[in-house]
């Protein structure tokens, strides 16, 4: 690689410099990457609540407790009274329930630790995504299989944009466990639509093309006309996510 005129000291310096550059490059690129820094965050909660038991085995929908997701930007952690809906009778004497009872009797909230957090300059709206029939697992992983909730996705901006640009590749369509309202369509039909396959009624394939005014699938229109009930929460059309900065940073 080197000619004979190059002495040993120079060689060593060059090799050492290259090695240092590589290390600095790898560490600064991947060391700051959310895949490395954020994925795997698994805080210990004040009460050892298991999603695996409640959502997985007992098949309680995500929306039973996180009931604000459909209407508000924030997915609320349930109040203690939500726990007490069942635990007033189920396992009421268990020592693990004692803390919940204490919180309920003293009117003092349980301080759950937050797992998924976006930076404060990002506005993420849960309701918009839930009503577009995007399953919780798209961003949170399969929580119903987790004993302790762990952050599974990087939640970085490039990760958001990947999905906004190619939703049919990344979106997990609404599943029964989440409780997302899919209108008159079954979950399987919505899954077909999101994955851009022909639905059973055979008219609705959508074109994920960004052409100024994205043509969303028209299949939900016939349902919207049927509703005739102002104020009833309806699923929204599937479309590409917005790409302009001010959609999320405002």
């Amino acid at each position: 690689m080197f000619t004979k005129e190059v002495n040993k000291k120079t060689k060593t310096t060059i090799w050492a410099g290259l090695a240092l550059l590589t290390i600095v490059g790898v560490v600064s690129y991947y060391g700051f990457n959310n895949v490395v820094t954020d994925v795997g965050y698994r805080p210990e909660q004040p009460i050892p609540y298991s999603h695996k038991l409640h959502a997985g085995e007992l098949k309680i929908s995500c929306m039973y407790c996180h009931n604000t997701v459909e209407k508000s930007a924030h997915a609320a952690v349930p109040s203690t009274s939500t726990c007490m809906n069942c635990h007033i009778a189920v396992k009421a004497e268990s020592p693990k329930i004692a803390k919940i009872k204490e919180s309920w009797e003293n009117n003092k909230p349980i301080e759950w630790r937050r797992v998924h957090k976006l930076p404060d300059y990002v506005r993420f709206n849960h309701s918009r995504h839930i009503r577009a029939q995007i399953d919780c697992a798209s961003c949170h992983g399969e929580v119903e299989k987790m004993g302790v909730v762990t952050q599974m996705k990087p939640l970085s901006m490039s990760w958001c944009l990947d999905c906004h640009r190619n939703p049919q590749e990344f979106v997990v369509p609404a599943r029964a466990v989440s409780g997302i309202f899919t209108g008159l369509n079954s979950n399987e039909e919505v899954a077909k639509l999101i994955k851009n396959e022909q639905p059973s009624w055979g008219e609705g394939k959508w074109k994920p093309v960004r052409d100024g005014k994205t043509e969303a699938i028209g299949i939900l229109d016939h349902e919207l006309k049927q509703s005739g009930v102002p104020g009833l929460v309806m699923p929204k059309k599937l479309a590409l996510g917005p790409e302009n900065c001010s959609s999320c940073h405002y």
């Binding site: 209108g183 009930v229 309806m234």
Partner: peptide
């Protein structure tokens, strides 16, 4: 009214 979409909801 008890339309299909209301029942689905």
């Amino acid at each position: 009214p008890a339309t299909d979409i209301v029942l689905a909801r």
